[in-house]
Protein backbone atom coordinates (compact mmCIF):
# COMPACT_ATOMS: atom_id res chain seq x y z
CA UNK A 1 0.00 0.00 0.00
CA UNK A 2 1.23 3.41 -1.00
CA UNK A 3 -0.31 6.71 0.03
CA UNK A 4 1.46 10.03 -0.37
CA UNK A 5 -0.29 13.28 0.51
CA UNK A 6 1.29 16.46 -0.75
CA UNK A 7 -0.29 19.69 0.48
CA UNK A 8 1.59 21.73 -2.10
CA UNK A 9 0.25 19.71 -5.00
CA UNK A 10 1.42 22.36 -7.45
CA UNK A 11 4.99 21.11 -6.91
CA UNK A 12 4.14 17.80 -8.56
CA UNK A 13 2.39 19.63 -11.42
CA UNK A 14 5.50 21.76 -11.97
CA UNK A 15 7.79 18.72 -11.87
CA UNK A 16 5.73 16.96 -14.53
CA UNK A 17 5.63 20.00 -16.79
CA UNK A 18 9.44 20.18 -16.47
CA UNK A 19 10.19 16.63 -17.53
CA UNK A 20 7.32 15.35 -19.68
CA UNK A 21 8.84 16.54 -22.97
CA UNK A 22 12.28 15.14 -22.17
CA UNK A 23 11.27 11.66 -21.00
CA UNK A 24 8.35 9.60 -22.32
CA UNK A 25 8.06 6.75 -19.83
CA UNK A 26 9.72 6.26 -16.45
CA UNK A 27 9.58 4.26 -13.26
CA UNK A 28 8.71 6.18 -10.12
CA UNK A 29 10.38 4.48 -7.17
CA UNK A 30 8.84 4.72 -3.73
CA UNK A 31 10.70 3.77 -0.59
CA UNK A 32 10.91 4.91 3.01
CA UNK A 33 13.34 7.61 1.82
CA UNK A 34 10.93 9.20 -0.61
CA UNK A 35 9.44 9.38 -4.06
CA UNK A 36 12.11 9.33 -6.74
CA UNK A 37 12.70 8.92 -10.44
CA UNK A 38 15.70 8.45 -12.66
CA UNK A 39 15.22 8.41 -16.40
CA UNK A 40 17.04 9.22 -19.60
CA UNK A 41 15.76 10.83 -22.77
CA UNK A 42 15.36 8.47 -25.72
CA UNK A 43 18.83 9.29 -27.10
CA UNK A 44 20.53 8.75 -23.70
CA UNK A 45 22.16 12.19 -23.89
CA UNK A 46 20.32 13.64 -20.89
CA UNK A 47 19.21 12.17 -17.59
CA UNK A 48 16.61 13.36 -15.10
CA UNK A 49 16.90 12.63 -11.40
CA UNK A 50 14.06 13.60 -9.07
CA UNK A 51 13.86 13.18 -5.31
CA UNK A 52 10.94 14.18 -3.11
CA UNK A 53 11.87 13.15 0.43
CA UNK A 54 9.25 11.47 2.56
CA UNK A 55 9.53 14.18 5.26
CA UNK A 56 8.22 16.73 2.78
CA UNK A 57 4.85 15.00 2.49
CA UNK A 58 2.04 15.67 4.96
CA UNK A 59 1.37 11.95 5.00
CA UNK A 60 3.73 9.32 3.61
CA UNK A 61 2.92 5.65 3.74
CA UNK A 62 4.97 3.18 1.74
CA UNK A 63 4.74 -0.33 3.16
CA UNK A 64 7.26 -1.81 0.76
CA UNK A 65 9.48 -0.51 -2.01
CA UNK A 66 7.41 0.00 -5.10
CA UNK A 67 8.34 0.84 -8.66
CA UNK A 68 5.56 2.29 -10.78
CA UNK A 69 6.00 2.62 -14.53
CA UNK A 70 4.20 5.65 -15.89
CA UNK A 71 3.82 7.48 -19.15
CA UNK A 72 4.86 10.98 -18.11
CA UNK A 73 2.75 12.71 -20.75
CA UNK A 74 -0.36 10.96 -19.43
CA UNK A 75 0.60 11.66 -15.82
CA UNK A 76 1.10 15.33 -16.69
CA UNK A 77 -2.35 15.40 -18.35
CA UNK A 78 -3.94 14.10 -15.17
CA UNK A 79 -2.03 16.43 -12.84
CA UNK A 80 -2.97 19.37 -15.05
CA UNK A 81 -6.53 18.73 -13.89
CA UNK A 82 -5.52 19.56 -10.30
CA UNK A 83 -5.97 23.13 -9.15
CA UNK A 84 -2.82 25.03 -8.25
CA UNK A 85 -3.86 25.16 -4.58
CA UNK A 86 -5.09 21.58 -4.46
CA UNK A 87 -3.77 18.93 -2.13
CA UNK A 88 -2.61 15.96 -4.21
CA UNK A 89 -2.62 12.38 -2.92
CA UNK A 90 -0.96 9.54 -4.85
CA UNK A 91 -2.34 6.08 -4.02
CA UNK A 92 -1.46 2.59 -5.24
CA UNK A 93 -1.86 -0.97 -4.05
CA UNK A 94 1.11 -3.35 -3.94
CA UNK A 95 1.16 -5.32 -7.15
CA UNK A 96 -1.72 -3.31 -8.61
CA UNK A 97 -1.80 -2.19 -12.23
CA UNK A 98 -2.96 1.37 -11.65
CA UNK A 99 -2.23 4.49 -9.63
CA UNK A 100 -4.78 6.98 -8.34
CA UNK A 101 -4.25 10.73 -8.11
CA UNK A 102 -6.68 12.43 -5.76
CA UNK A 103 -7.11 16.21 -5.82
CA UNK A 104 -8.71 18.07 -2.91
CA UNK A 105 -9.50 21.77 -3.05
CA UNK A 106 -8.11 23.70 -0.04
CA UNK A 107 -11.55 24.05 1.60
CA UNK A 108 -12.45 20.42 0.80
CA UNK A 109 -15.51 21.35 -1.31
CA UNK A 110 -14.22 19.55 -4.40
CA UNK A 111 -12.63 16.14 -4.47
CA UNK A 112 -11.56 14.43 -7.68
CA UNK A 113 -9.84 11.15 -8.34
CA UNK A 114 -8.09 10.14 -11.52
CA UNK A 115 -6.95 6.58 -12.05
CA UNK A 116 -4.12 5.89 -14.46
CA UNK A 117 -2.90 2.57 -15.81
CA UNK A 118 0.65 1.64 -14.93
CA UNK A 119 3.03 0.14 -17.47
CA UNK A 120 5.99 -2.24 -17.40
CA UNK A 121 9.20 -0.38 -18.13
CA UNK A 122 12.63 -1.96 -18.29
CA UNK A 123 14.57 -0.12 -15.63
CA UNK A 124 17.83 1.35 -16.83
CA UNK A 125 19.20 2.72 -13.60
CA UNK A 126 22.60 4.34 -13.90
CA UNK A 127 24.90 4.52 -10.91
CA UNK A 128 25.88 8.15 -10.46
CA UNK A 129 28.54 8.54 -7.80
CA UNK A 130 28.88 11.75 -5.83
CA UNK A 131 31.51 13.87 -7.56
CA UNK A 132 33.66 16.88 -6.78
CA UNK A 133 32.99 19.42 -9.49
CA UNK A 134 35.65 21.78 -10.83
CA UNK A 135 33.25 24.69 -10.96
CA UNK A 136 29.83 25.33 -9.44
CA UNK A 137 27.76 28.30 -10.53
CA UNK A 138 24.67 29.31 -8.58
CA UNK A 139 22.54 31.91 -10.30
CA UNK A 140 18.94 33.11 -10.67
CA UNK A 141 17.02 30.41 -12.53
CA UNK A 142 15.18 33.00 -14.65
CA UNK A 143 18.51 34.47 -15.78
CA UNK A 144 19.78 31.03 -16.78
CA UNK A 145 16.56 30.41 -18.75
CA UNK A 146 16.88 33.79 -20.46
CA UNK A 147 20.48 33.11 -21.49
CA UNK A 148 19.69 29.66 -22.91
CA UNK A 149 16.68 31.04 -24.82
CA UNK A 150 18.60 34.03 -26.19
CA UNK A 151 21.59 31.97 -27.31
CA UNK A 152 19.42 29.36 -29.01
CA UNK A 153 18.20 32.06 -31.41
CA UNK A 154 21.81 32.39 -32.63
CA UNK A 155 23.29 28.88 -32.41
CA UNK A 156 22.67 25.24 -31.52
CA UNK A 157 25.34 24.75 -28.89
CA UNK A 158 26.56 26.69 -25.87
CA UNK A 159 30.10 26.76 -24.57
CA UNK A 160 30.05 27.32 -20.81
CA UNK A 161 33.41 28.51 -19.52
CA UNK A 162 34.21 29.28 -15.90
CA UNK A 163 37.30 31.30 -15.05
CA UNK A 164 38.33 33.64 -12.25
CA UNK A 165 36.60 36.43 -14.18
CA UNK A 166 33.21 34.76 -14.14
CA UNK A 167 31.07 32.41 -16.17
CA UNK A 168 30.81 32.86 -19.92
CA UNK A 169 28.07 31.46 -22.16
CA UNK A 170 29.01 31.53 -25.85
CA UNK A 171 27.45 30.40 -29.08
CA UNK A 172 28.00 30.75 -32.79
CA UNK A 173 25.69 30.32 -35.74
CA UNK A 174 25.22 31.30 -39.37
CA UNK A 175 24.35 34.91 -38.50
CA UNK A 176 27.20 35.50 -36.04
CA UNK A 177 28.35 34.90 -32.49
CA UNK A 178 27.22 35.75 -28.97
CA UNK A 179 28.98 35.88 -25.61
CA UNK A 180 27.31 36.52 -22.26
CA UNK A 181 29.51 36.90 -19.19
CA UNK A 182 28.17 36.85 -15.65
CA UNK A 183 30.34 37.94 -12.78
CA UNK A 184 29.95 36.87 -9.20
CA UNK A 185 27.42 39.13 -7.52
CA UNK A 186 26.69 38.59 -3.84
CA UNK A 187 25.90 42.22 -3.04
CA UNK A 188 22.26 42.09 -4.07
CA UNK A 189 19.56 42.70 -1.44
CA UNK A 190 17.81 39.42 -2.14
CA UNK A 191 19.72 36.13 -1.96
CA UNK A 192 17.68 34.70 -4.84
CA UNK A 193 19.20 37.32 -7.14
CA UNK A 194 22.81 36.45 -6.30
CA UNK A 195 25.30 34.83 -8.65
CA UNK A 196 27.91 32.78 -6.84
CA UNK A 197 30.82 31.12 -8.60
CA UNK A 198 32.95 28.51 -6.86
CA UNK A 199 35.88 27.46 -9.01
CA UNK A 200 38.63 24.95 -8.27
CA UNK A 201 39.92 24.77 -11.84
CA UNK A 202 38.93 26.72 -14.96
CA UNK A 203 36.61 24.59 -17.06
CA UNK A 204 35.06 24.92 -20.51
CA UNK A 205 32.46 22.53 -21.96
CA UNK A 206 30.11 22.47 -24.95
CA UNK A 207 26.45 21.46 -24.72
CA UNK A 208 23.42 21.21 -26.99
CA UNK A 209 21.13 24.19 -26.31
CA UNK A 210 18.04 22.16 -27.18
CA UNK A 211 18.48 20.15 -23.97
CA UNK A 212 19.44 23.15 -21.85
CA UNK A 213 16.26 24.90 -22.95
CA UNK A 214 14.24 21.84 -22.06
CA UNK A 215 15.75 21.82 -18.54
CA UNK A 216 14.73 25.44 -18.00
CA UNK A 217 11.07 24.36 -17.98
CA UNK A 218 11.84 23.66 -14.30
CA UNK A 219 12.41 27.39 -13.66
CA UNK A 220 9.06 27.81 -11.77
CA UNK A 221 10.30 25.27 -9.19
CA UNK A 222 13.15 27.36 -7.78
CA UNK A 223 14.43 30.92 -7.84
CA UNK A 224 18.01 29.69 -8.12
CA UNK A 225 19.66 27.06 -10.29
CA UNK A 226 23.01 25.37 -9.69
CA UNK A 227 25.19 24.42 -12.66
CA UNK A 228 28.03 22.02 -11.76
CA UNK A 229 30.81 21.47 -14.26
CA UNK A 230 33.82 19.17 -14.56
CA UNK A 231 35.84 18.55 -17.68
CA UNK A 232 35.34 14.77 -17.54
CA UNK A 233 31.67 14.67 -16.54
CA UNK A 234 28.18 15.57 -17.71
CA UNK A 235 26.98 18.95 -16.46
CA UNK A 236 24.43 18.90 -13.64
CA UNK A 237 21.68 21.52 -13.69
CA UNK A 238 19.90 21.40 -10.35
CA UNK A 239 16.66 22.97 -9.18
CA UNK A 240 16.00 22.54 -5.46
CA UNK A 241 12.43 21.73 -4.58
CA UNK A 242 11.48 23.69 -1.46
CA UNK A 243 12.55 21.67 1.61
CA UNK A 244 11.69 18.41 -0.17
CA UNK A 245 14.46 17.48 -2.51
CA UNK A 246 15.60 18.30 -5.99
CA UNK A 247 15.15 17.97 -9.71
CA UNK A 248 18.51 17.41 -11.40
CA UNK A 249 19.26 17.27 -15.10
CA UNK A 250 22.47 15.68 -16.33
CA UNK A 251 23.65 16.46 -19.84
CA UNK A 252 26.58 14.82 -21.66
CA UNK A 253 28.88 17.31 -23.38
CA UNK A 254 29.74 17.56 -27.05
CA UNK A 255 33.36 17.19 -28.07
CA UNK A 256 35.30 18.20 -31.15
CA UNK A 257 35.63 15.32 -33.60
Amino acid sequence: MLELRLVQGSLLKKVMESIKDLVNDANFDCSATGFSLQAMDSSHVALVSLLLRSEGFEHYRCDRNLSMGMNLGNMAKMLKCAGNDDIVTVKADDGGDCVTFMFESPNQDKIADFEMKLMDIDSEHLGIPEAEYEAIVRMPSAEFARICKDLSTIGDTVVISVTKEGVKFSTRGDIGTANIVLRQNTSVDKPEEATIIEMETPVSLTFALRYMNSFTKATPLASQVTVSLSSELPVVVEYKIAEMGYLRFYLAPKIEE
Binding site: M40, S43, H44, V45, A46, L47, E124, H125, L126, G127, I128, T157, T206, A208, E232, L233, P234, Y250, A252, P253, K254, I255, E256, E257
Partner: peptide, 14 residues
Protein backbone atom coordinates in the same frame (compact mmCIF):
# COMPACT_ATOMS: atom_id res chain seq x y z
CA UNK B 1 30.36 19.46 -36.15
CA UNK B 2 30.90 18.30 -32.60
CA UNK B 3 30.26 14.77 -31.46
CA UNK B 4 27.51 14.34 -28.89
CA UNK B 5 28.53 12.08 -26.01
CA UNK B 6 25.98 9.94 -24.14
CA UNK B 7 25.30 9.13 -20.51
CA UNK B 8 26.60 5.57 -20.60
CA UNK B 9 30.05 6.87 -21.60
CA UNK B 10 30.25 8.32 -18.08
CA UNK B 11 28.07 6.13 -15.88
CA UNK B 12 27.37 2.43 -15.86
CA UNK B 13 24.10 0.59 -15.38
CA UNK B 14 23.42 -0.65 -11.86
Amino acid sequence: GDKQLTMNMFYSFQ
